[in-house]
Each structure stands twice: as structure tokens, then as C-alpha cells.
Nucleic acid binder design. Sequence first.
DNA 1: TCGAATTGTTAAAACGATTTTTTACGGCTG
DNA 2: CAGCCGTAAAAAATCGTTTTAACAATTCGA
Lengths: 353, 353
Amino acid sequence: MNDIGRRTGKPPTIRDVAQLAQVAPATVSNVLTGRRPVAEDRTKRVLAAVAQLGYRPNHLAASLRRQETRTIGIVIPDLTNPFFAALVHRIEELAAESDYQILLMSSNEDTEQEAHRVEVLLARQTDGLIISPARDDLSAFAASAADLPPTVLVDRGFGLPGFDTVAADNYDAAKRGCQHLLSLGHRDIVLVVSDTSLANISDRIAGYRDALSEAGVADRARVIVGGFSVDGCRGAIEQELRRADRPTAIFSAAYIATLGAIKAIRALDLAFPDNVSLLSFDDSDWMMALRPYVSAVAQPVEEMAAESWRLLKQRLTGEGGALARVRLPCSLQVRESTRPPSAAKAKRRFGSI
Amino acid sequence: MNDIGRRTGKPPTIRDVAQLAQVAPATVSNVLTGRRPVAEDRTKRVLAAVAQLGYRPNHLAASLRRQETRTIGIVIPDLTNPFFAALVHRIEELAAESDYQILLMSSNEDTEQEAHRVEVLLARQTDGLIISPARDDLSAFAASAADLPPTVLVDRGFGLPGFDTVAADNYDAAKRGCQHLLSLGHRDIVLVVSDTSLANISDRIAGYRDALSEAGVADRARVIVGGFSVDGCRGAIEQELRRADRPTAIFSAAYIATLGAIKAIRALDLAFPDNVSLLSFDDSDWMMALRPYVSAVAQPVEEMAAESWRLLKQRLTGEGGALARVRLPCSLQVRESTRPPSAAKAKRRFGSI
DNA sequence: TCGAATTGTTAAAACGATTTTTTACGGCTG
DNA sequence: CAGCCGTAAAAAATCGTTTTAACAATTCGA
């Protein structure tokens, strides 16, 4: 380890390398980026100098000059939701493969925070954005909308004009999930959602309603709103389960709602699928730990991540065509928590009429 | 909406604002940053121009000049692990409060990827780093070590020289967890870990062993290694559960191991705590969905995040003192999955001697 | 063999801010 | 009234790279 040529203190710059290699800074740049050919002997000198100095190009300066940061901003409502964690994880992985890095921010389901984060990302010159907006309308971005770099909306905000959007086919998934329950003989199916103002949720509600309609039991539709907290959902569901005409099946339309549903069922000393069937929207690996194993409508998280990144990258490289709206199909995982309504239950209901 | 003074195409720069406000660029900067006083009338003119142009300071340029990016890099092994998701979530939240943003990267438990990510972060001039290293030795950073900005190691790499480090008190937590099982009467407690090369894991192993020693049953120690996959752990545990001298309790020392343990127990048609008690290291909100509710040693994720950020921020603002090593206590959550070994079980064991 | 095209090299400009230095202008003081 | 001082504004330097444009040297075609 010698210190020859090592400027103590500040890290070496391209000028230091150039000086040591006896070439111009531009030549160093050309060697390192490969944009223009450089004679072999100079290339070697430059490389040697780079190695000797431990030179690391300052990405900041390069970004400023190139007007490209190779950074994309991701804004999601809540990283502790495994769905979003998985989404971000995969996007990061894919982005890294193309030498893009991600600036991650959580909006905490709050429009104002979201708007602020987007502003920050704009100021930071991110090349692109992937957002799962807190609300489906444009209010949050209204102020910044005109200055947005290529932006993909994922999970939420599907179809908003001006954006590439990616989402699961929530309508179809909810419909199929509900049909599954119907086919088991359930007629009293309660749908638990976190919030009705979100389009992905209202799509699920629509799918649920349509499935009931087509089965001729539209009037049995019961949608309850539990909010974004587990205990909010739990409370709402408990109330539902305490009624005389207790539902025979619960369809929890979000991660939080599933947790709330299970907690509610436990709290009342009931069991699924014996007393109520349970179907979850969103599948997580931890569900395999549940006994009974919860049936679920699984969103294609990986594909959503892949598709979001694909679309964004196309825009970044200028290959993008017309704005895309990608709906990805969910898969229905029929497992142990959904069964025909129990005889005992049917009898009780019968008696109560 | 008029377009007066609006340069179409490129976003407005500080020069545009200066020109419109009839002042020098420096004055605009002073108004916006508040570093130097500016006369009131000029201030008003500048602010008006800023509003009219929709000027947004280019953070990139400011960073380059200031030699400070207000960006911190976070490198974690795996975002799909709820522990790390929660950690990142909280750090992001805290950092945002101080106007720092985070560049997030996953190492995927891989030293090479990790080293590469760290290099990228260095090139990007991040002001600080928070890393949960894939290995406890310095190999990954050896090349970059000298050039690292203030760096906090969290969860792993505790006590590595040259770093502020934060970790749960794994030794004590495992010991107390094991003591809990011992106090219930268990003597055949198997500890399931992902990997033995990690210091946090070996601390857990040590705590486990010491608890057994102090109870005079050091020879009953059984540590099995399942790797970083759920099914790896499941397989290893199944094998253990199939033995004639099946353990009466399983202590799963990591998120993945807990999942594997539950899966294994289910696969063999056993139940906890009836056939085996189960104690989990790492607590997640989804565990509340388990029936029975799994007892767990909970790492103080929020505090670990807070402490990491606090230490890092101190270094960033130059208030930092001597390198800190912070051990945070875990809490033992005794719930339903840990019970005294069953009579039936005891009898069977007795008969098999 | 001479001018044109090509190639490699470098000096200088540019990116967009902040910080340092210089200048200008009053108000005081001796 | 000259000189000094303090303040606010402007001008210029700076951060570290890439790109442009100018230049020299070489190759090629006619």
C-alpha cells in the first residue's frame, strides 16, 4: 500500500487522473464511458491512473451534465404492507439490472405527504416515477403534473389520463372469488374493504356485486368498511359476526382486512371454515403458516413489478408507444378456509326465520 | 394561465428567475435558502418570479456545489423480510422529517451484490449509509472501506471496528426465550437457525446454549441449520420432528425459520402447542392471525430504526462522539404456542427409553 | 501529389446551483 | 470633506463531470 499520487483529504477527481495519466480530462471520460475511441496506450495509462488513485467518477456531476440521473422515484402508501414491500423489492431488483437506483418514499396513505414527496423527487431530477397513489384522482399531483417525468401508476390510479398504468384485474378477481364462495353454497357473503374511495377497491366491490347479481342474490350484498387499521377492520367484522343473521362467508378485500377478519373470528371464539368461510384478497407467504390455510385471491405482484418497470424503462429509452393500461390477472388459490356453509349453521339460520 | 416569462421546453433555472426578478442569481439563492439577508422589495420580486415560473431548485446542482446530497443509502439483505421492511419504513419516515431521502438497495444476502451496491452508493455521494451487511466480516467493504461516509451497521455486523453499530440483544433475548421454555418443563428444545456464520445468529445460539447450560442440560442442545429458504428450514425441521426422540419445543431463530417450522408441523399433521411448543424469534403483525397465537421474542424494530437514524444523523451534523455500540433489549411475548410438554408426550418419551 | 475525409486529442463551454470575492452605496466620524 | 465601515447586491469562481467544437495528424481518393 503506497500513497503515491494519492491526494489525501478530498477524493480524486477526473483532473487528478488526467494529470497522472498525462492526458486531458476528456480523454479519461472517453476511456471510462467508452463514448469515443481512445488509442490503446493512452487507455492503458488512464486505467492505470484510475486504479492507482482509486478514482470513482462522481455520479452527481455526471448526472448534472448528462441531464439524466439514472434514478427513479418510488412512492407507495405503506412499506409495511407485504404487497408493497414485495413490489418495491422486485422493482429495485429489475432496476438495478439496468443500472438504475431507486429513491423510496412512503406517503402513509396521505395525499399531502404524497404531494410533498413527489415534489422532492421532481427537484431531485429523477428520470422516472413509479407511484401507487394515495387517491385515484389527480389532486395530489395537480400542482406538479405538468413537470412529471415518465410516470407509471401501479395498483392504484388505473387508467388516469396521461400515465402508463398497471393494476391487477381487481374486478375479475373479486368476481371469481365471490363466485367460488357462491358455488360452495354461500349466499350471505360479507365483503370487507379498507376504503371505498380507491378505484382498485371499488373494482373489487363491483366484481363482488356482479357475481351476486348474476347468481340472483344481489340483495344479499353486504359491504363493510373497516379503514386502514387492523383493529378498525376487526371491529367492523366483529359487529357483523355478532348479528343473528351472521354471514356464512367473509371476503376480506385487502391485507389489513384479512388480518382484521382473522382477529375478529378469533375474538368471538369462532373458527374458519367451520363457522364462517374466509377468503382473502392478497396472498402472502406467511399465510402458509395459517391453519387452516387461507384461500386467497393472489395478486400477481411480481408481474406487476415487472410490467411497471418494463413500461417505465421503455419511456426512459424512448421506445415507449401509446400510453399503456395493463391489467394483470389474479389467481384464485382455493385452500382450506373456504367450505360449504355448515349444516349446523344452515339449521340455525333456518330456525331463526 | 398565461405564459409570460415561461420558457417552454426546459424547466426554468435560477438565471431565469433572476432575470425576471431583475436581480442576480445569487440573490435568488439567498432568498430561497435564507443564508444572507435580502431587501424586502427584492425578496418579493424574487418570490413572485419563482411562483410565476414554477421554479424548482435543481437539487442535483445544489448537491454538487454544496458537497452534500442529503441522501442516505440503505442496504439490506431482503426487503420481503417484514423485519427489514419495517426497519426501512421507519428509517425513511425519520429521515424524511429531516429532509433526507433514501436510496434503497437489496443485497439479496449476497456479498458480491452488496459490495457492488455500496460502490454505487459511494459514487452517488450519499452523505451516509445504513447497512445490514450480508456477512459480519468486512470483506464486502474492504475495497471501499477507506472511502465510506458515516455508516451505521444495523442488526448485523455488531461491533465491527470503525462503525456505529446497532443491534438487538440477541444473546439475552434467545437466553430468555429458552429459559421461558425451560421453565415450562421443556428439555428437548431444538433451535432452528438460517445460517451460523452471522453474528446475530450465533449470539442467539450462544444465548440458547447458555440457558441450557445453566439449567444443567447443556448436552441436550440441538441446533439445526435450515438456510435462507422457508422450505430449507421446513425440511430440516420435519426431519427433526420425525425422530423418535422428537423435541418437545422448537425455537425458531428467524422469520424464515418460523415459517418453516409452522409449515413442517402442519406437514406432519402435528399441532402446536399440543405436540410441540413453538417459540419464534421475530414478531410480526401477521402472527396475530395465527391460531394459536405464536409466542415470540420481539425485536425492537422501531427502536433499532430510530437509533440507527439518530446515530447517523449525529455523525452527519458533526455532533457524533465516540463510535457507539447500541444493544437494544427484545421483549418476550408469551402467548399460546408455548405450553408445558404434554403428558401424552412425556409418556411416549418415557416408553421409548 | 493535393485536397478531403477521418481519426484521435484537447481546450473550453456547459450543466445549475452556491459560495466567495468584488463592487457600489450610504452613513458616520474625525 | 476625505476616509472608513458596514451592508447589500452583483460578478465571478466553483463543484466534477460530459459534450462540443477546434485542431492536428493521418489516411484516402482522385
